[in-house]
């Protein structure tokens, strides 16, 4: 308990003192996760909406696929991305392994099914309400996608936040494809894992506190913005 209290005290010192190493790790983590979520949203939102609105052979299989892939194990994604980016892999020539780009690719693979699956469900529900009116105005499923994504924007924030939560919290994928290289690919989760194994609980705990605070802050801010906008619109 004494050891734990000491670790907590040191952790707060690191956080409040804006420790250089801590800032570097937090900053890289945010850059990677935010960029991965933005890319995943650009892919997942229209993809999910298209699956919701269009009817085609194999649609049900795709729905099941995306739903199942919401729980994709990060280590498996890391392994697949590793195999793709390794020297002998399909994309090996790009030399991306053990770079932040590789970590972003892995997180995009991890987050896209979450955003696509949640978007699909939401847009499908919205289409039930809007279909007759939009088709009457002349918008078929193709032209309705943008209108429905815009109208579902408040609820879709939750889908994007779920993706951000997944990206910022996962350790398996970024550890495999990033390699946890100091000053290059070390992010909060990989650093926590490393510091715990080294016995440096203070830094691990400090990072843990930052990770938790960031997660709560991002979700809280998004919730407040969302609720304010929702209240103004309806």
């Amino acid at each position: 308990m004494n050891e734990f209290s000491k670790a907590v005290a040191v952790a707060f010192q690191l956080v409040l003192g804006l420790d250089h190493q801590l800032i570097e790790i937090v900053s890289l983590s945010l850059q990677i996760s935010v960029l991965a979520v933005i890319i995943a949203a650009f892919i997942g939102l229209p993809l999910g909406a298209a699956i919701a609105l269009f009817r085609f052979p194999g649609r049900m299989a795709i729905v099941v696929f995306f739903n199942a892939f919401m729980g994709l194990p990060p280590v498996v994604v890391g392994l697949i991305t590793y195999l793709l980016l390794s020297r002998s892999g399909t994309l090996g020539t790009l030399g991306l392994l053990f770079t932040p780009t590789a970590m972003i690719i892995a997180q995009v693979i991890l987050v896209t099914p979450i955003i696509a699956a949640l978007t699909r469900q939401l847009i499908e529900d919205l289409w039930i309400e809007y279909e007759d009116q939009l088709r009457s105005l002349g918008a078929g499923p193709g032209r309705a996608i943008t209108a429905l994504l815009w109208d579902g924007r408040f609820s879709l924030t939750t889908a994007i936040l779920a993706g951000f939560g997944r990206a910022s919290a996962e350790v398996g994928a970024v550890m495999i494809v990033g390699g946890n290289i100091d000053h290059v690919t070390r992010v909060m989760t990989t650093a926590i894992a490393l510091e715990v194994s080294k016995g440096d609980l203070a830094l691990a705990l400090g990072l843990g506190i930052v990770l938790l605070t960031l997660s709560v802050s991002v979700n809280g801010a998004a919730f407040l913005i969302n609720e304010t906008a929702r209240r103004r619109q309806s």
Binding site: S136, L137, A147, W150, S234
Partner: peptide, 23 residues
């Protein structure tokens, strides 16, 4: 066509008409 329950998009009154005209 106008339906029994009007379906309004989450945008302003003018933007609702504008959307229909854009289509």
């Amino acid at each position: 066509m106008v339906f029994q329950r009007p379906v309004m998009l989450r945008r302003s009154v003018a933007a609702n008409i504008d959307y229909a005209l854009k289509l």
